[in-house]
């Protein structure tokens, strides 16, 4: 048995709650990360957990796809744990978002993969790919987080937009984050059309 344990640390000019929102907004994956993801569907979600199916393109060999089901949970108010099974290898990613100033936060991403038997041969490949994966998804998400922070500071309300009056386009309070995040109705939402789709006890969809 061999464990791959790798951590990436970064800082970003947005609040931890904006990062958390981005992490839980599965809907953007099919558009913003379409280079890596062929398909994403939600099977289940509630106020702490989301179970998603992904069909992933393998970095460097994009014509090959792998299917995985990820279970993502909010361990505490700033920590997201995701349990996966890529290439048949159990994985755990732990992401910690911490506010370090006004609209600024640190992000620590730890990946762990457990290799058994011949899977050990994949260790150097996964080690190489995970860095590329982390870099690319980070830079694809970065403009999204910065823009989201900017519009939230202009008093943007989800599903409504900016206030009509310019004088009301200012917000200095703390940016909220609550699960499950609001989504489009399931009749309209490609993500939730899967026959397994099921809501948890708190239906935040509008």
């Amino acid at each position: 048995m061999k464990i791959l344990d790798v951590t990436f640390k970064r800082k970003v000019n947005c609040s931890a709650n904006v990062c958390l929102w981005n992490h839980w907004d599965q809907d953007h994956i099919n558009y913003v990360h379409k280079g890596f993801y062929n398909e994403t569907e939600i099977f289940y979600e509630d106020d702490r957990v989301i179970l998603t199916y992904h069909r992933l393109k393998i970095p460097l060999i994009p014509f090959l796809n792998i299917n995985t089901i990820d279970m993502q949970t909010l361990k505490d108010k700033s920590t997201v744990c995701t349990y996966g099974f890529q290439f048949g290898i159990p994985s755990l990613s732990t992401v910690i978002y911490k506010d370090i100033g006004k609209d600024k936060c640190s992000v620590s991403v730890n990946y762990k993969f457990k290799f058994l038997g011949l899977q050990i041969l994949l260790y150097p490949i996964i080690k190489f790919l995970i860095r590329r994966w982390n870099d690319r998804t980070w830079y694809e998400d970065l403009p999204l987080k910065l823009r989201r922070q900017k519009v939230k500071r202009m008093n943007f309300k989800d599903f409504k937009g900016l206030p009509n009056k310019i004088k009301d386009r200012r917000f200095t309070g703390s940016i909220d984050f609550k699960l499950p995040i609001s989504r489009l109705r399931k009749t309209d939402n490609k993500l939730s059309k899967h026959p397994f789709y099921n809501f948890g006890s708190k239906d935040g969809h509008v």
């Binding site: 907004d25 999204l144 823009r147 989201r148 519009v151 939230k152 943007f156 989800d158 599903f159 409504k160 937009g161 900016l162 489009l184």
Partner: peptide, 8 residues
């Protein structure tokens, strides 16, 4: 600014 979540 998209009124959904603020996207471009």
């Amino acid at each position: 600014i998209c009124p959904h979540f603020g996207g471009p």
